[in-house]
Amino acid sequence: MKKFVNKVTAQIFIILIPLLVSIFYPIQNIAPGILSLGWDVSNFNETINNIVDINIVISMIWGLLGSVFICLLIRRSNKNKLFNRGSQYNDYPLWLYWTAGRILGYGKITLVRVPIYLQFQLLFKDYFPEVLIDGAEERKLEVKIIKRNMNEVSNEINLILIDTYKIVTSEIPQDKVNLPTIIIESGNQIDSNRSFNPEFLKEVRKITNIYRKEYKQINVFATTNTDHNKAIINKCFKNGGRTGFENIFVYQASRGSYVFEERYKVL
């Protein structure tokens, strides 16, 4: 994580250099000379002086313009770059991704080695123009659907998406076990293959379309690969802004005991 925090911090600092310098040095003395290389700024200082005759304010205006200019250059440089590259586990705070995508203009992100809850958040937020996934081979496998506790009266429903490996009842929080629950198995868990099953996506979409009208909240427990996650979020939950569910929570399994303890609100 430190590597990416340092990368973002360094670029933000470079952007802010002109603005910070302008507080302590009358940057308007040098800015016109620099900008005149590309633009006619002969009347700029006179215009500013007509508005306010305070040197520090004029200096900060020039500093702000310099920071904006550097920001545009950095964004242009980052446009085709992948932000979270490398082999490490990319469990970074959401604000770091927001800064990289919205401020620094990184054009790509990968969902590989990103925890599932964060994959959901990033796909909902649309911070990056291009989202990369595993690119798994497409295989049509038999999908299995199990329904439990559907007669229980509740505003919540559990959606358990079993893909790369099984999820058992003991791994679900005790206060959620007795809720109405739908389990959808992709078929991948049989051989732990990371393939993309269009039939799995079809069934998830069918289930979410039906039950979004009956329940306000959906709790997602998933072992889905990146290809399935991207398709599920875009086709089943976003739906042009019409998710149907008021709240979507994604539970993340701990890396040690593999119990779904932590929950994250994605909508």
Rank of each mutant, 00 (worst) to 15 (best):
K2V: 14
K3A: 10
I15T: 15
I15L: 13
I15F: 09
L16E: 08
L16H: 09
P18L: 03
P18R: 03
P26V: 03
I27R: 10
I30A: 05
P32C: 01
L35H: 00
L35V: 12
L37I: 04
W39A: 06
D40M: 01
V41G: 02
N43S: 05
N43H: 05
N45G: 01
E46Q: 13
E46D: 13
T47F: 07
T47H: 01
I48W: 04
N49S: 15
I54V: 12
N55R: 11
M60Q: 13
W62M: 00
L64P: 05
L65Q: 01
S67I: 11
C71Y: 10
L72G: 10
L73S: 08
R75M: 13
R75L: 08
R76A: 14
N78C: 12
K81D: 14
L82T: 11
R85F: 10
R85L: 10
Y89I: 06
W95M: 08
I103F: 06
Y106Q: 14
K108A: 14
K108S: 14
K108C: 13
I109F: 10
I109V: 15
L111G: 09
R113D: 15
P115L: 00
I116V: 11
Y117P: 14
L118T: 08
L118G: 10
Q119W: 02
Q121C: 10
Q121Y: 02
L122Q: 14
K125D: 15
E130N: 12
I133N: 11
I133H: 01
D134W: 00
G135W: 00
E138F: 05
K140D: 13
L141E: 12
N149Q: 09
N151R: 09
E152F: 09
S154Y: 07
S154L: 06
S154T: 09
E156W: 00
L161W: 06
I162E: 15
I162P: 12
I172G: 15
I172W: 09
V177E: 13
L179R: 07
L179V: 12
T181L: 00
I182K: 13
I182A: 13
I184H: 03
E185Y: 06
G187K: 08
Q189L: 04
N193T: 11
F196D: 05
N197S: 06
E199A: 03
F200C: 14
E203D: 07
V204F: 00
K206I: 03
I207V: 15
T208F: 00
I210Y: 02
Y211M: 00
K213Y: 08
E214C: 09
K216P: 03
Q217W: 00
I218T: 08
N219D: 01
A222H: 04
T224S: 15
T226G: 03
D227C: 01
D227T: 01
H228L: 07
K230W: 05
A231K: 07
A231I: 06
K235L: 05
N239P: 02
G240K: 06
R242P: 07
T243D: 04
F249N: 07
Q252E: 14
S254E: 02
R255H: 05
G256L: 04
F260P: 12
Y264K: 04
